[in-house]
């Protein structure tokens, strides 16, 4: 797997899109810190962007890379390499290069503004950690969609729909159901619903760590009681790990049964 990963990673790191993605974060970080030199507040603004943008880029990049490297894949399949290693190598190549753009792009401006000497370092690390998780999750989902759809346009469509659902529609349905069922106790329901969507889960995790849960009102108090505890934190991490692992395992399964 190492060799496939190496070539996919190099291929991507050299590509124009990785640079654009990297430069975007670099510019974003500097602009935010220039306008607002409070690191903690910059972390909150960044969170709102990362939580929507990282999944979008992960899905689009993932599907695009899979379809564009069809030739490379076919070349590899005839070589003495294990099948699962080909696909996992490509997946980690994409997810790795996207994560690198994110971490370095944001890391550089925050470092120059004295991140290491401030106490925002934990919040910032959490933000980066969540960003990397979201990259892994959505690239994985994108690879799954692409391997199951021979038709590029269809695969691309499904991938964008998936992102739209997770980032926008899910919240809409969630809020609607809260209004419709407002007569009933909704604590458990809203907690489970938040945990099930990796985007919502990431947002809640960061908001609670930043200690601005008061903004969330009553729900905030309920959430704080669960997510604010050690147990809540580890349960959330476990859910994120599961969201990462399940697409990887399905990718492995699909790859071992596909004809090329």
């Amino acid at each position: 797997m190492g060799k496939v990963l190496k070539y996919s990673f190099y291929d991507l790191v050299r590509s124009r899109w990785s640079y654009i993605y990297f430069l975007f974060y670099l510019a974003l970080g500097f602009v935010l810190l220039f306008l607002n030199s409070d690191l903690s507040k910059a972390v909150i603004t960044l969170m709102n962007i990362i939580i929507v943008l990282v999944p979008l880029i992960g899905t689009i990049f993932g599907t695009m890379y899979y379809y564009n490297s069809k030739e490379f894949t076919e070349l590899l399949l005839a070589q003495p390499i294990k099948r699962s290693h080909i696909f996992l190598g490509q997946y980690f190549g994409v997810a790795g290069s996207l994560s690198l753009s994110l971490a370095v792009g944001l890391g550089v401006p925050f470092m120059t503004y004295g991140l290491l000497r401030s106490n925002a370092i934990f919040d910032f690390s959490l933000l980066l950690g969540v960003g990397i998780f979201l990259t892994l999750i959505f690239t994985g989902l994108a690879f799954n969609i692409a391997i199951s759809n021979e038709n590029k346009i269809k695969g691309f469509g499904y991938a964008v729909l998936l992102w739209l659902f997770m980032a926008v529609i899910y919240d809409g349905i969630f809020l609607l159901s809260l209004i419709v069922f407002e007569e009933y106790p909704l604590d458990t329901f809203s907690m489970v619903a938040t945990t099930l969507n990796p985007i919502d889960l990431s947002r809640t995790l960061i908001l609670l760590k930043l200690d601005i849960s008061a903004l969330l009102g009553y729900t905030g108090a309920v959430f704080k009681r669960f997510f604010g505890t050690q147990l809540g934190f580890w349960v959330s991490m476990l859910v994120l790990v599961l969201w990462t692992l399940i697409p990887i395992l399905r990718l492995k399964y699909k790859a071992s049964r596909k004809d090329f």
Binding site: D11, R14, S15, S69, K70, E71, E74, L75, A78
Partner: peptide, 10 residues
């Protein structure tokens, strides 16, 4: 292989 499809950017 029948049709030489190679990664184009190499």
């Amino acid at each position: 292989p029948q049709i030489a499809n190679f990664p184009g950017n190499l």
